[in-house]
Each structure stands twice: as structure tokens, then as C-alpha cells.
Design a protein around this nucleic acid. Structure first.
Lengths: 332, 332
DNA sequence: CTGTTAGCGCATTCAG
DNA sequence: CTGAATGCGCTAACAG
């Protein structure tokens, strides 16, 4: 564990100066080929590794990028992270990851910690409990920030997100055209931008087909299982209970399905689901959601990473902007 | 994006020396409380942030830890990573993550890249295709390495892993006591240590109950879907096809179940499954595996992180060692 | 072609 | 109590 083989030692060993070693190691043209050879040979023999901390320091770059997301254990985010990692790795960057657990304090601490750890840029998918944006403002004075999926829409920031309004509209239109009615919406928390967008798509589609919007059919969830159980029960207790439920994501649908089954309803017969995410395991269900909106989390992540790369590598010409990834309705 | 507010500037501003600023900022006792106050006030107003790259350089520490694992998108690993992140975050470390995609070259490149990025330690869950260990040997000269789950057993390295032999034995014993016979094993790739351990537990249990080991019942898979389909078909083609299948993990079981259904077999009636992982969504299946071995990936990750912390913080007294996490058989 | 020097930001030792 | 000087490892401008 000797991390202290510096150029100085190999310079002394060879009786040359440190700068000669430095130059020889980077194949500087103005160094004699004999010297270069000699230096490189010894460096190899001694397993010389340049001290990255010194280089980071000197260049004021770390080639590290921070990622802050709600939960690593949610497949949506781990897929996004995977896309991020692949994109950045190709360009020689490493990914430093932190979980906010949807908590504002943790998110602020994570952003702060990343800055202190010296990352060159930050990717964020916001915590649902984030009510105050000052931690982003502070951070953006030091490094560029790009949001993905759970974005902060503001001219100062770049953001990559799915067109949720259209996705919701398309899903509704598909269902309505298919002849379904009594469609309820189990939406996300108020704090998420996507929640109002999803509601808009839902309402727009109903309006287009002159179907009255029943306010009782629209529920916002806080994403805990208890709340899901509560809200699905409320929906099932309505005198005209919904035939179809548009669910925030697959896990909400699965939890709701359980309640339905307990109450004696047959899935995809008495009641069906459409979800906003396409988790691989749903194909294994005997009665999966009849349709699902694929949001391409890997693309979201890698597009955000691309934007960040641009922001980091050409900061002078970089202008914050938004990229919209079109989700795709998948009929099962 | 001005990342260049140094102590020098605040020293000049206040007409004191840089060293005074440095000391004031760390509440050095030998600095006048007025000066300290004055310095800290200005630092706060100017949003002074110490340059972490300079500090890393000076202390020869980065408080970054590298994690190399096969796939972020596999829930087992994302849960492990989550455990790692939680444990390290508490101690002020950040996590740099890289995927090996089970490829030796990528794994070696990842380890190398982490070293170059200046991490203080590395956690590894080995790629299944890793045949050469020299990248670990090189790395361990610079920073400590701890393996988790897919471990390299060697006195030089610490490792945290599940007791797979016992888990397999327990699962088998449960099945045998329950009266099941004709139990097949869809195991992992040869390259994984756990594969032979699982086979040992399987064989040991059969021997204990004087049941002959049928070599045709034991299949090693390469974890591609095609191979899974191939091997389950081979098993189903046997004249006495298995009644129970012990599967490497849930996704193998799910893919195998599909084939079974296509061939007209009823799951949990004609054929049942037991798996080596407890993925949350299995509880939503209509016919889930009848039992599963919970391996506590989060614990594996956080225990490995603990060992690494010890190795990094008290390198002089640290001795590599192994921690075994006992898996738990969960009957559904 | 190669050596000397300076400097990145900070902590620390040595002087006052 | 405070300032000046030093050095971490490396690169690069400046001199030969």
C-alpha cells in the first residue's frame, strides 16, 4: 500500500530533473528519445502511477460527476443511473451517486457534499419533498447542474424529461377509443411537476371526447403503500367505481391490484390498469396492466449526461436547455 | 460559475495573512476571537467553500470510495449499492460506481480508472467473466479492496458473502422433509464461487437423505435468457422430469416458468420453483416461487463498506478478514 | 534537448 | 496571537 512513488524519485534515480521525467512520460517531442525510453522503462518497472489528486488539483478538474436521485432501489432510477454511467464512462468521467430518499434535507446535504468532494458537474432527479431550491442555486455557482425526470423548470437549468402530458393523453385516447369509460387516475404527489402534467393529459383527453371530468376519479398519492391502499379503497367505494385505473407507476398498480383482489374483483375483467413505467417483471404477471407508458429511463439519464458533458467541456458557449423524451404507449 | 474564491482573497480583503485565515476558519485556539469572527463572517458572506481538490491533494485522501459491480439494473446489486451508499455517507464518504457488465476487460478498466480517479478504497462484486486477478493485485498496492457477494477468496482480501452452501442445504432439506422429490438445480455459471457452493449444499442434502444424485438434474447456466430456455427444456425433456427446480435467482425462475407454461405445465402444481433471491415483485405473482432464499444484499453491501472503512481509517492495525451473512429461507 | 523556477490552495512549522 | 516560509506532486513558462 505504498502510494508514494512520485516523479521526484524516478528523477533522482535517473539523475535527471523532474520536469524531464514529466515530459518524457507524456512523450513530449522535445525530449531525447533515449531519455524518454529510459524514463518510461523505469516508470513501468516501478509501476509508477501519476498521483491523480495532484493532477486534479492542478487542473482544477476531477472528472467526477455527481448524481442525486431519490432511491437507488427503484428500478426506474437504477436504469437511469446505468445510462448515465455508460455515457459518462465513455468520456472518462466517473459517477458519484447519492440518494435523497425524497427528503429535502438529504438532497441539500448531498448536493453540498458533492460540491465539497469536488465534482465537475451534477445530475439531479429531485426529491418529492423538495420545497426550497436554494441548494441548487448555491451549487450552480460552482458547477453546472442538469435535471432529469424530476426536473426543475427554470431558464437557468438544463432538464431532460418525458412528455407526460402527451403520454397521459395518448393512453386515455387509446382507452376511450377502445370503448372504455369510468377511467380513474391514481397520480403522484403534488410536489412533482409530472403530476400536474399527467392530470392535464387526462383531463384534455376527456374533454376532447366530451366526457365529464369526475373529480372523485382523480387521486394524488404520496407513494407510500398505506396511501395507495387508502386511495384505491376510496375509488372502489364510489357508487360507480372505475373500470380502468391509470396508475403513477407499476408498484402503485400492483399494490392496488392486491386490494382489488382482496375485494373480490378480477383483474383485467372487473377492473384493469394502465401504468406509467414499464418494469420488466410485469411481463411475467398473469394479469399485467393492459398497457404501459415506457418512459425510457436509460435515455433520460444518458441525454442528461450528454447535456452535462457539454456544459462541463464547453462552458463558454453552453446555454441551458431542455430535452423532451417522447414516451411510448405499449399495448399488451 | 466562479470557482475561484480562495483564502488568499479573503486574506487580502481583511489585510491579514493566509495562514491566519486558514486558522480562523478551523477555529484554531491561538487566534484572536475578533479576528476569527471577522474572517468567518466574511467567508460566510462571500460563500467561501474550501477547495476540496487542494485538500484532497494535501491530505492525500479523497473521501471517495469506488464500487465495481456487474449491473446497476439488477435489483440485487442496486440494493447492495444502496446499503453501501448509506453506510459510507454517514462517515462522510462518497460512492463512485462503475458497471463491469460481467466483462473482465471492463472490470479491469473500472478498477484502474477508480485508482486514477483517486478513490481511497474499492468495493468489488466480481464479473462472472473474470479469469485473471492481476488488476486486483495491482490496485491493492495502492488502496484497500473489499469484495462483496461475488468474492475472491484470498488471505490478502477482505470479503463479505452469503453462506450459499448452507442456504442450498436448508432449502433442499425443507423440500425433502416436505416430501418433494425430483429436485433439479438450475445453477449459475462455473466462474462464480457461489455456483460450486450451491451445488455442494444441494448434493450434501441429497446424500444426507440417501437420495441418489442425478447428474442430469444439475445445470449450470450462463445467465442469458436463451441459455435458460435451453436448460429448462432439457430438464423438461427428461423421462422423469423434475417436480421442483432450485433456481439461481428469480429472473431465471421467471423465464423458466414461461417455458413451463408454454409446454402446458401448471406452476406450483405440475412444477414448482425455489429461488436464491427475494425480489420484491415476486409477492405480486399469482404463482410465485414456493420458497426463496433471502440473501440480504443491503447487509452484504453495508458490511463490506464497514470493513472497507476500517481498512481505510486504521490501515496499520487492519487485517483482511471475511464476514459471512447467513441467508434466510422464506417459505411462501 | 534539458534544467530551473514558479505556482495551483491549503495546512503547518517555524519565527517572531 | 499572527505572519512568513515550506511543501504536497505535477505541469509549464522561461532559460539556457
Amino acid at each position: 500500500m505504498q502510494a508514494n512513488l512520485t516523479m521526484k524519485k524516478i528523477a533522482k534515480e535517473l539523475g535527471v530533473s523532474v520536469s524531464t521525467v514529466s515530459r518524457a512520460l507524456q512523450n513530449h517531442p522535445r525530449i531525447g528519445s533515449l531519455t524518454t525510453e529510459k524514463v518510461q522503462k523505469l516508470a513501468r518497472e516501478l509501476h509508477y502511477q501519476p498521483n491523480s489528486r495532484a493532477i486534479n488539483f492542478k487542473n482544477n478538474r476531477s472528472f467526477n460527476v455527481g448524481v442525486v436521485l431519490p432511491y437507488l432501489t427503484e428500478q426506474f432510477f437504477s436504469i437511469a443511473l446505468s445510462g448515465i454511467e455508460e455515457t459518462l464512462m465513455e468520456k472518462g468521467y466517473s459517477v458519484v451517486v447519492m440518494q435523497s430518499k425524497n427528503d429535502y434535507e438529504r438532497e441539500a446535504a448531498a448536493v453540498d457534499s458533492l460540491i465539497r468532494h469536488g465534482v465537475d458537474g451534477i445530475l439531479v432527479s429531485m426529491a418529492s419533498e423538495t420545497y426550497n431550491k436554494s441548494h441548487f442555486n448555491n451549487a450552480t455557482h460552482k458547477v453546472p447542474i442538469v435535471f432529469f425526470d424530476r426536473v426543475l423548470k427554470h431558464p437557468r437549468y438544463s432538464a431532460v424529461y418525458g412528455n407526460i402530458t402527451k403520454a397521459a393523453f395518448d393512453a386515455m385516447e387509446y382507452l376511450i377509443e377502445k370503448g372504455y369509460s369510468d377511467i380513474a387516475l391514481m397520480n403522484g404527489p403534488n410536489s412533482l411537476q409530472a403530476t400536474s402534467e399527467r392530470e392535464k393529459g387526462y383531463v384534455d383527453a376527456l374533454k376532447k371526447y366530451n366526457i365529464p371530468v369526475d373529480i372523485q376519479y382523480v387521486k394524488n398519492l404520496n407513494l407510500t403503500k398505506e396511501d395507495t391502499v387508502l386511495k384505491i379503497n376510496e375509488l372502489l367505494d364510489l357508487e360507480n367505481r372505475p373500470r380502468i385505473i391509470l396508475a403513477f407507476h407499476d408498484y402503485i398498480a400492483l399494490d392496488a391490484m392486491e386490494v382489488c383482489k382482496q375485494r373480490g374483483l378480477k383483474i383485467n375483467q372487473d377492473i384493469s390498469f394502465v401504468t406509467f413505467s414499464n418494469l420488466s417483471f410485469c411481463t411475467y404477471l398473469d394479469n399485467p396492466p393492459i398497457a404501459t407508458v415506457e418512459q425510457f429511463p436509460g435515455e433520460l439519464g444518458s441525454s442528461a449526461a450528454q447535456l452535462l458533458l457539454e456544459a462541463m467541456e464547453t462552458p463558454d458557449t453552453y446555454e441551458p436547455r431542455e430535452i423532451v423524451i417522447e414516451p411510448k404507449l405499449i399495448i399488451r
